[in-house]
């Protein structure tokens, strides 16, 4: 999981132009400057490319809904990769 977290963190840093960003489980869009709807789209696109995965239509939008955080994002990516 740590390896996965590192990789996801790398993607976050690139998408949100922040080399200092540290990914913790309970982060939400409010905690990351630039994570608005456009930023969210960019994040999803970058994650799909980086991990070679595909989010379902509904997952793309549900990832930024109430109660979702980076922990649930990590879990979802984990379920789609072998990492």
């Amino acid at each position: 999981m740590d390896e996965l977290r590192d990789e996801v963190q790398k993607v976050f840093r690139a998408v949100f132009d922040d080399d200092q960003l540290v990914l913790v489980d309970n982060m939400t869009a409010d905690d990351v400057p630039g994570w608005d709807s456009l930023g969210h789209l960019n994040l999803v696109i970058a994650l799909e490319k980086h991990f070679g995965i595909r989010f379902a239509t509904a997952e793309i939008s549900s990832l930024k809904e109430e109660g979702q955080n980076t922990g649930s994002l990590l879990a979802l990516i984990k379920s789609k990769t072998s990492m």
Binding site: F55, T57, I60
Partner: peptide, 15 residues
């Protein structure tokens, strides 16, 4: 790929 049309009204696969 219509996923991004339904989510964000993008005309095609973002790539």
């Amino acid at each position: 790929d219509p996923r991004f049309y339904h989510n964000a009204k993008l005309p095609c696969d973002p790539e």
